[in-house]
Nucleic acid binder design. Structure first.
Lengths: 133, 133
DNA sequence: TTGCATGCAAAGCATTTGCACACAT
DNA sequence: ATGTGTGCAAATGCTTTGCATGCAA
């Protein structure tokens, strides 16, 4: 994950957040990021997490995923190959990533025939994850 | 739209909400519902709107749509034919509905091969609506 | 010194809940 | 009388913002 050109401060909250995020394959909420960082003795304030996320979102380095529990999740923007979507478990709240070429093709073709301009898409499936099914 | 069997009260806030919703083809937020009802001189408290929505959602009469502006939108549940998804304009915030058979087929096939159980799905496209493109 | 990333605490919003009241039964 | 839909206001929970601080340059 590329960093914005900034000059950081103190312990480098931004670096810590970016580093953690880069290791993730699936989406984390702000609270989860805070906990994960605290667990590795690198506390970062919630405010900074949101600020970094906002910054990264603006330069397209992360994707925001909203699965409908009143919170936003963040994950590194995927460069093609790792592009995926999510199945949200309505029982335990877990996110399970999946990818499907046919789905992507359908969305791609669909996007061309729509009147507007489509720059992003998000597919959310709801049901039971493999553990809860 | 079928109503729950209830005995209502006073001016019948629930009826007013259900009636308004039944006229809609696309999703409305709680605030929009409140405004629309106020405009037709049938004020309903925000709390009642949420309560009615919750009730209708539980019996599957409405669908909740989350397009990522920190609010939930509601629309009547479609019986097959009218099933659609939304393009969200990143400039003006408008919702534009669309439907696509190939997309639905892809999701349907995909849902079968996933390990969990899929009961709902939602597709959100982001970009520019036809007016803002 | 100057600028800005950071943390803390307060503010903002959408949504939910507690409570009292009044209408339907 | 009794049950419950309704409105108001307070509470909740996530996210944002204001402000002060101190490191980086």
């Amino acid at each position: 994950m590329r960093l914005p050109n900034a000059g950081h401060r103190r312990g480098g909250a931004r670096d810590a957040v970016i580093e953690l995020l880069a290791e993730q394959s699936c989406a984390l909420s702000a609270a989860e990021i805070e906990q994960a960082l605290a667990a590795r003795r690198r506390q970062v304030s919630r405010a900074s997490i949101y600020r970094v996320m906002d910054e990264l979102a603006q330069i397209g380095q992360i994707t925001q995923v909203e699965v409908g529990q009143g919170l936003v999740r963040f994950e590194p923007a995927h460069d093609g190959a790792a592009h995926h979507h999510h199945l949200v478990c309505q029982r335990c709240g877990a996110l399970e990533p999946f990818a499907d070429d046919a789905l992507e093709r359908a969305i791609s073709r669909l996007s061309e025939r729509l009147p507007g301009r489509v720059s992003e898409h998000e597919v959310v499936l709801r049901g039971r994850c493999s553990s809860c099914a």
